[in-house]
Design a binder for these strands. Sequence first.
RNA 1: GUCCCCAUCGUCUAGUGGCCUAGGACACGGGCCUUUCACGCCUGUAACCGGGGUUCGACUCCCCGUGGGGACACCA
Length: 488
Amino acid sequence: MTAEKPRVRFAPSPTGDLHVGNARTALFNYLFARHHGGEFILRVEDTDSVRTSTDSERRILEDLAWLAIDWDEGPGRGGAKGPYHQRERLDLYSHYLKILIQAGCVYPCYCTEKELEAERAELIFRKMMPRYMGKCRNLNDSERKNLADQGREPAYRFRIGTESIAFTDLIRGAMKFDAGAIGDFIIVRSNGIPAYNFAVVVDDYLMSISHVIRGEDHLSNTALQLLIYRALGFKPPVFAHHALILGKDRSKLSKRHGSVTVREFRERGILPEVLLNYLALLGSSLGGGREVCALEEMITSFSLDRAGKSGAIFDEDKLKWLNGIYIRQGDLHSLTERLLPFIRAAGYHKVDTLDRVWLERVIDAVRGDLSTLSDIGDQMDIFFDDRYVLSGEAQRLLGKEQALTVVRALQEGLEHPPLSADNSYRRIIEIVKRKTGVTGKNLFMPIRAVVTGRIRGPELDKVFAILSPASLKHRVETAISGLSGINR
RNA sequence: GUCCCCAUCGUCUAGUGGCCUAGGACACGGGCCUUUCACGCCUGUAACCGGGGUUCGACUCCCCGUGGGGACACCA
């Protein structure tokens, strides 16, 4: 590791929403930078003219901000090594392309995409590794002129030798590749836009990136990039390739596995700090057996040594479990604040007119049953008469003879003169118990069922304290008339 | 197909030659608490891929096999 402060980067391409795998890469880079007091740079790799969209870029930046991953240099923040969009760095790439051409490391290739595709198909058919066979590798000047005269715009390919490429990966150790197995690859497309491997090398070098931390899927790209570093005479950064996030079938996590973008989890009501916490936990260990871990602690304890070498399956159960912990342990005011959009989405359009103190009591009562913020609507329903409904389970439970007796006693108990909200619950339970002689589960479950319409939910004393006496009475009455009808 | 990477409970992992009768977490089962479901607490089931070495001693080191994954675009 270098003695100076490290400079790392996260370089998304704005071709869709931020994938959790990429978010994890961003987090690793961020944690690495913060842990070592270095700099974290954000660079937008927008060289794919057809798939890139400014909307995607906006959304990725939003997602990063939502996760509280902030960058020291990059879009919206500036910096000495900009610009931070590859599209604005085209002259830089053409400068280094010229150098490579002059050095004879690169040659123009006039093959059309159709021709290349045919070659690839042929190789695959013959069960060989699909790679460029070097058709334009040794063209002379007149041949080139000929092709150019046909109106063909050349792409530029890097001339691969037979040397072997070795480097030390910070996570994986000694790594060795054989250049012979690789075909000459394109570094600048026929439209003049650089290809990934070339742009990355130029940018990482010019931006003084000291450590490249990225997914294992880039391992073989590293060999190509190292070749370019060598040809340009650049000192390469230190590389670290972490394992990927896998789906249930152990293949790279992708759309068909379900939710995969940061935005999807956000919309499903996963807390940003939980997603971060989980991503840090996945495929690594926070050390000391810690699982629930705030960002500050992650920064302190972060180490690439702990990054796992094998892929880790994304476990939504554990994510939800972690989310539930944060929901239960967090501050009630901020929880309420974050819940508001989800309450609105559940159809409570007038949530802002609700009494905030009352709302917070409701949230406090149900937070124990929430695993995601989007569960709130369903859990809140029991406190609103127009949403109250006897579930099938509750009806079944109330269908029992003894249950009906309890409910009738409850009805009588509610007839007693208004009591203070604080002790009404205990008094009513006392009355019902005395009248029926029923105790325990047989006493509480019927009461829970009529009052909430469900067989599970918040603690009953809280429910009684929140619900108005009128609602209570109304629910019991309608339940009784309904049930008696069924029984007869 | 070729190259590369990886390999501990179902899942995420601890374990860096003796502390391992392999520890923790999620999930699952049981119990306790709450005169209720849940929460919480306690507890159970469950793993070192196989074969060779190296060593007094291998989950840990080496080799082979097997299995899984990744890469192989004028995408990044």
